[in-house]
């Protein structure tokens, strides 16, 4: 499972404060802790408060690269902020993210090619979020076709069906699970799939339980990546156990620790 640790995000108080004061330690601690907990990549997001996000993302990338060689998922709605991060990244990178609008694809797909980066494609466009699996498939197909035309390697494309909060759009979770299966049929080689997990429990109580239950269900639908909190031990243990039961890992008594040794 491609696990993207979500904690380096300026919208969190501690990270926001660290960015303001240029204090490397809290950022580096989070980078190390998430990596040790099993993250395959680290999301890097300046947050809404940053006055100069291009400088901020560069500082974050440099700060993180001093302590880990984990893949970096450069997360911004602004392509020039993402490119600022890519331009100084030594670690492998993922662009987080593009939607299905041609204007965004026109910028972000060539950028991913230029920097040899993976790419997360969201099944949404400027009209908004999809309402059923058919809309999700149509949007995903737009992204896949565009990437094929530009010779972007489809194995490096992660499609996100857009998870919505269960307390707001309860019918959508089932649509997401079905879309995950069908995304794999869009091309050969198939695109990979990813979800922004925490969205499912936005505004609910007992978020961790809802997150891990949905994650395991999505794993049953073939999910290959998730943006999540790797320091949520119950969540990670559920993820690893589901991988084990799906025969993705060979069992041993220390299977929870063994998973993190990769």
């Amino acid at each position: 499972m491609f696990i993207v640790g979500e904690l380096i995000n300026g919208m969190y108080k501690k990270v926001g404060a660290a960015i303001q004061t240029k204090d490397k330690k809290p950022i580096q601690d989070l980078a190390i802790a998430q990596t040790n907990a099993g993250a395959s990549a680290l999301d890097v997001n300046c947050g809404p408060a940053s006055a100069n996000p291009k400088e901020t993302i560069k500082w974050l990338v440099e700060t993180i690269q001093e302590v880990v060689d984990t893949t970096l998922a450069l997360d911004s709605t602004k392509p020039d902020v993402i490119e600022a991060g890519l331009s100084i990244a030594k670690n492998q990178t993922v662009i987080n993210s593009t939607g299905a609008d041609v204007e965004r694809l026109d910028i972000l797909v060539p950028m991913a090619l230029k920097y040899n980066s993976s790419l997360i494609g969201l099944a949404m466009n400027k009209k908004g979020v999809p309402q059923d699996k058919f809309q999700r498939l149509e949007l995903a197909a737009t992204i896949v076709t565009y990437c094929q035309e530009k010779n972007f390697p489809i194995e490096k494309l992660y499609l996100d069906p857009i998870v919505l909060p269960v307390n707001v759009a309860q019918a959508q979770a089932e649509e997401v699970l079905e879309a995950l299966r069908e995304f794999k049929l869009l091309s050969d080689p198939a695109p990979k799939t990813i979800v922004g997990l925490s969205n499912i429990s936005q505004g609910t109580v007992n978020r961790s339980l809802i997150n891990r239950t949905f994650l395991v269900m999505a794993q049953c639908s073939g999910l290959e990546g998730a943006i999540l909190d790797p320091l949520d031990k119950d969540l990670m243990d559920a993820l690893i156990s589901a991988e084990l039961i799906r025969n993705k890992q060979i069992y041993c008594d220390s299977f929870l620790d063994a998973y993190k040794k990769k």
Binding site: I250, Y251, C252, D253, S254, D257, A258, K261
Partner: peptide, 13 residues
């Protein structure tokens, strides 16, 4: 036993 092979390698490392 592949499960024990893996476990033993973990214990040794």
């Amino acid at each position: 036993d592949i499960n024990i092979a893996k476990q033993l390698n973990i214990l040794i490392t």
